[in-house]
Simulated assay, not measured.
Amino acid sequence: MKKHHEVVAAIIQRGEEILCLQRGASKYEYIAYKWEFPGGKVESGETQAQALIREIKEELAIDIQVDGHLLTVEHEYPDFIITMHGLRCTALNEELVLHEHTGFKWLRTEQLQTLDWAAADVPLVEKLRG
């Protein structure tokens, strides 16, 4: 049976732009170097918002404000299944530091489809594009 993870993803907005991050190498080739919204696993006892604030601080060294729920995505990858809660957020500071990713871009919603997104993030991109 495949592992199932509950994860949160931050759709971080700065004015009209949204933060997009590029993954590095991965043991799972199908997500290596793909673009994604930052986030991570929800730990026991954490709310989705608490998990996201912690993960973004760990991954990017920035503080965020969680503004609300955008979409929950169920996605089955070849090796695991995720339930991903996409939450709209605002960056409280902009000097981000990449601890786990190889690149980042701030893009307007109409530019999001120009990136090669991880499969689980595609429904979030589609929802944002309306």
Rank of each mutant, 00 (worst) to 15 (best):
Q48N: 14
F80N: 15
H99M: 05
D67C: 14
R129K: 15
V73L: 06
R54N: 03
L128G: 10
M1Y: 07
A118W: 00
L52V: 03
D63I: 02
Q113R: 10
L19Q: 12
E100H: 15
T90E: 04
I82W: 02
Q65K: 11
A118F: 00
Y28S: 01
K127L: 11
F37T: 02
Y33K: 15
I31V: 15
L115A: 08
E16P: 07
L60P: 09
L107H: 12
V97N: 11
T102C: 14
E43M: 09
H99L: 06
W106E: 01
L96Q: 06
A32R: 13
L70R: 01
A61H: 12
V66A: 05
A91D: 03
A32Q: 09
R54I: 05
E59R: 15
I18H: 04
I56A: 05
L60Q: 06
P38W: 12
H69T: 15
Y77P: 08
I62H: 06
D79Q: 13
E95F: 12
V8Y: 02
C89V: 09
H69G: 14
H75F: 08
Q111A: 07
T102F: 10
I64Y: 09
I53S: 00
Y28E: 10
V7H: 09
H4G: 13
K105H: 13
A118I: 00
L128W: 01
T72V: 09
H101G: 07
G40P: 10
I11E: 04
L92G: 03
G24R: 11
E59T: 12
I11L: 15
A118L: 01
H5M: 14
M1S: 13
V122A: 06
H75D: 09
A49N: 11
E46A: 10
P78Y: 00
I12G: 03
A119S: 14
S26R: 15
I18P: 01
V42A: 06
E46C: 04
L115D: 00
E94H: 12
G40V: 11
T109G: 07
I81D: 10
E110L: 03
E110V: 01
V42K: 01
Q111M: 04
I11K: 07
E95A: 14
A118Y: 00
A118D: 09
L60W: 14
Q113Y: 08
G39V: 11
G15M: 12
L52R: 00
G86R: 07
Y28V: 01
I62L: 04
W106N: 11
P38H: 15
Q65C: 13
T90N: 04
K27V: 02
V97T: 14
K105G: 03
A49D: 14
A91N: 05
K2A: 04
F80H: 13
F104I: 08
L92A: 05
F80Y: 15
A91Y: 02
A91Q: 00
K57V: 01
H69V: 15
L52I: 05
V97P: 13
V42G: 00
E55T: 06
V66L: 08
